[in-house]
């Protein structure tokens, strides 16, 4: 496939409930790069990712994206009890071809079936998503990403609450995407994983602390600075308790 286009942010500020959740972020996710976004709770990682996907309007600055973007939302943001079969859920990834009205072609259906098989859920076509474990459900969402076939892929905590086998297999998929030249950006918590498998890192504490090659970003000094900034918000938040859960969600 052709090389992915650029994803640039210029002086981006995004607000949540009138308070800045992401503050003056500038930089570029290079085409074909594999970047982790890390930072303390409430650092605006998810907000930044959702803004990149076009779900939050920037308060200031802008986002330049030249290519189609696929987003993996946090699994907790979905209605997992919804009565829909695995294959139907995966076929929603064909939205670009089908839109709201057009039928799913045989080729599209085959593509969705192949994607289910690729994530290890062969034979799950008719299974309702409500009966899946957290790991299997995440596999369905990954299958939907496969079907979307986008040059830019954004993952929000893709390995959270997964058993190690599922996490390993999904990580392998992410590496395949990287190998195919797609631009992949993932919000992550596990720093060990980031240091091992993600070449680029953006350390975010509302303001960008550092952005670049992982080894240069995740230094002790940078991590200390991020932590100190997070402690600063905790004290400020004592004045307005009711906003704290909102921050949690924004994390």
């Amino acid at each position: 496939m052709k090389a992915a286009g650029t994803l640039r942010v210029e002086n981006l500020t995004v607000c949540h409930e009138r308070r800045p959740a992401v503050h003056h972020v500038s930089g570029q996710f290079a085409p074909g790069s594999l970047t982790a976004i890390v930072g303390p709770n409430g650092a605006g990682k998810t907000t930044l990712l959702r803004a990149l996907a076009g779900l939050h309007k920037p308060q200031e600055g802008r986002i330049r994206a030249t290519d189609r973007i696929a987003l993996l939302p946090q699994a907790s943001a979905l209605d997992r009890g919804f009565p829909i079969g695995c294959l139907d859920a995966v076929m929603l990834g064909l939205w670009r071809e089908t839109g709201a009205f057009r039928g799913v072609t045989l080729a599209g259906r085959a593509q969705a079936e192949a994607a289910l098989e690729a994530v290890g859920l062969k034979g799950f076509q008719r299974r309702p998503v409500g009966s899946l474990s957290a790991g299997q459900f995440q596999r369905v969402l990954f299958a939907r990403l496969l079907v979307q076939d986008a040059p830019v892929i954004l993952l929000d905590e893709p390995f959270n609450a997964l058993d190690s086998r599922t996490a390993g297999e999904m990580l392998a998929l992410v590496k395949t995407w990287h190998g195919e030249g797609r631009t992949v950006v993932a919000v992550l918590h596990d720093l060990e994983l980031v240091q091992r498998d993600f070449p680029e890192t953006l350390l975010l504490a509302r303001d960008p602390i550092a952005w670049g090659p992982t080894a240069e970003v995740l230094t002790a000094a940078n991590r200390l600075r991020a932590r100190q900034m997070a402690e600063g918000w905790a004290e400020a938040a004592a004045d307005c308790d009711q906003d704290v859960p909102e921050q949690g969600r924004a994390a």
């Binding site: 779900l55 943001a77 859920a89 929603l92």
Partner: peptide, 17 residues
């Protein structure tokens, strides 16, 4: 039907596409 199902099941995805 399809937009309604999608909007119920996964609103952020619906918005993103």
């Amino acid at each position: 039907w399809r937009p309604l199902v999608l909007e119920c099941f996964d609103p952020s995805f619906a918005q993103a596409v």
